[in-house]
Structure formats: C-alpha cells, structure tokens
Design a binder for these strands. Sequence first.
DNA 1: CGGCACACCTTGATAATCGAGGTATCGCCG
DNA 2: CGGCGATACCTCGATTATCAAGGTGTGCCG
Lengths: 111, 111
Amino acid sequence: MPADTELLHGTLDTLVLKTLAWAPRHGYSIARWIESVSGQALQVEEGSLYPALYRLERKGWIVAEWGLSDTKRRVKIYSLTPEGRDRLAVEVQQWQHFANGVARVLLHAEG
Amino acid sequence: MPADTELLHGTLDTLVLKTLAWAPRHGYSIARWIESVSGQALQVEEGSLYPALYRLERKGWIVAEWGLSDTKRRVKIYSLTPEGRDRLAVEVQQWQHFANGVARVLLHAEG
DNA sequence: CGGCACACCTTGATAATCGAGGTATCGCCG
DNA sequence: CGGCGATACCTCGATTATCAAGGTGTGCCG
C-alpha cells in the first residue's frame, strides 16, 4: 500500500514543527515518528526532510544542536523555538481550515 | 481572511473531478463552485485551474466541448469520463487516507 | 569481519502553483 | 451611446517542494 506521495506538499513543515512540540528530536527520528504516529499513512523521504529542517531553521522556528543519541551516535538535535511554537499553532489552524474546505467539497452530496 | 494558498498542491485535480461528478460545467464555473462549496476556504486561481484542466483532459479523465452558457457566452464545457469517475473514487480515498494521517500527527496529544 | 540499521547530507529532474499579464463579450448604468 | 465590471478563456515565467538516487560514516550483532 503505497503512501500518498506528492500530497505532502507544504504540509511537511507543519508536521515537523508538531513533532518537536513535546520534546527535541534528531532528524532521522523525526521522520520515523511522523510515519509511526500517522499509522504509516505518511512517508517522509530524507530528500524532503533535510531541506525542510534547513528551511525551518533559517526561519528561526527550530534550532539545531549536535549531540549524542542513546546509542552513542553523533546526531543533530532539533528543538522548537518560541516563534516556532507560535507558528505551529497558526499552521495547524490553517491546515484544519484547508482540510475542512476540501472535505466539504469531496463529501458534497448533490450537484 | 486569506486562503491557504500553496496547500492546494496536488489536491486541485481531485477537486475538479469531484466538481464534475454530478454535472458538466465550464472551467470558470468549476472554480467558483469549489470556492463556494468549500465555504471560501479554498481559492482557485485561474493560473492553476486551466493547466489542471489540460492535465485531466490529457489523461482522459475529462472531456471538453465548446458550448454556450445561459448568458449566451462561448464556454468550454467539461464532463467526467468513465475513467475519470473511477479515478475520482481512488483519489478521494487517497485524500482521506492522507488527511487522516496528518490529523493523527497534528492532533497527537503527548510526545 | 561483514552486513544492516542508523544518521547525516547533496544533487538533478520533475511538476504544480502562483501572479500577472493578455483577449473578448455581455449586461448594466449613467 | 459610452464605459465599466463581471464573465470566460488563455499563457508565461518564476518559484518552490518534492522525490529518487546517490554518497559518507558509525555502531551493533551474528
């Protein structure tokens, strides 16, 4: 059952912000967490993930810090900034507004 | 209240197919219908609409025919083909799968 | 020691969107 | 009658995100 690739467009940033809402995480594990929590409905390619992380960092919504994982591997740990938290709230609301609109159209019964 | 531009990515084709599910319509009115039914949550730019119509036509999911509107203007009327109807079902289901995944992530309470 | 999962990164191709422009017609109002 | 706004079509260039596919290196386990 293939993931709905392409649809991710524009949503990935929001998902990443959300992932960091509770605790800092390193890149690779952000991807795994999203896939897991979405019930495998979403698939996060690394070629999309890392550019997304740079985008968010450049905008000041997340910050990176080198550290060590549980398994003693060198990892880059990302945390949400206060601005990122504000932004997350905005984007979640925008998503709901948008998804609601789409749902109204797609579930519309009758011409 | 600005529309959530950009997010449309990939969804527009599905919305257009859905619009034609009940009756044929001409391009301009497809855009207005989507905006209206979505409660203005979605905004359909003409620069996105017409390319989308050509895409769908090229794929054989809709067909175009020149005609006259109620107001006697020259219009291009689009209808869903049987293949387009099948495709609509697939895409609606994909959207729901995807939107569900996103919802699970964005509404996830607790790390 | 070899292989696999982890964990990072980069590049080029593809593709969809948007904004802004353009044309033409119809109906309405002054 | 003149003009303007809404209807209705189309096109172009710039932007941007995604993906696939490549690459590096390390820790762990058999």
